[in-house]
Amino acid sequence: MGNCVNFHFDIDGDNFTSAGEASVRIKKSLREMGFTPDVIRRVSVAMYEGEINMVIHANGGTADVNVYVDKIEIILADNGPGISNIELAMQEGYSTAPDNIRSLGFGAGMGLPNMKNYTDDMKIESEVGKGTTVFMTVNV
């Protein structure tokens, strides 16, 4: 398991304008590393959804991407409000996003289900009042 390349990003929670920058950078790096368009699309969309979630629901956090030859791990961690009912949050259409977020084009309640669809494995650990960590893996 020696061959791992790690990328780390701090995600600014006060700035919706920059939300998604880390995912765009990862997309570019994976392309340079020669991954297939399908793998790149799956990793970058899943990470982008998660990154946007951290900005709109959790006041930012950190993103770590570990690239192995056979899999790519994405770990998104925040100290936001946490998710009280993960099963409910995973349902398509469930969203607590306020109207101002909806007018920016997000808040359809599609992000978490989409992250699950795009990845081979996804796990959410969350504690109300403490924060949320999302672990995702895409097999190469």
Partner: peptide
């Protein structure tokens, strides 16, 4: 819609 996320979304897809 007219914000940077439109472009980032287009990049992702």
């Amino acid at each position: 819609l007219c914000n940077p996320q439109v472009v980032r979304t287009a990049i992702m897809m």
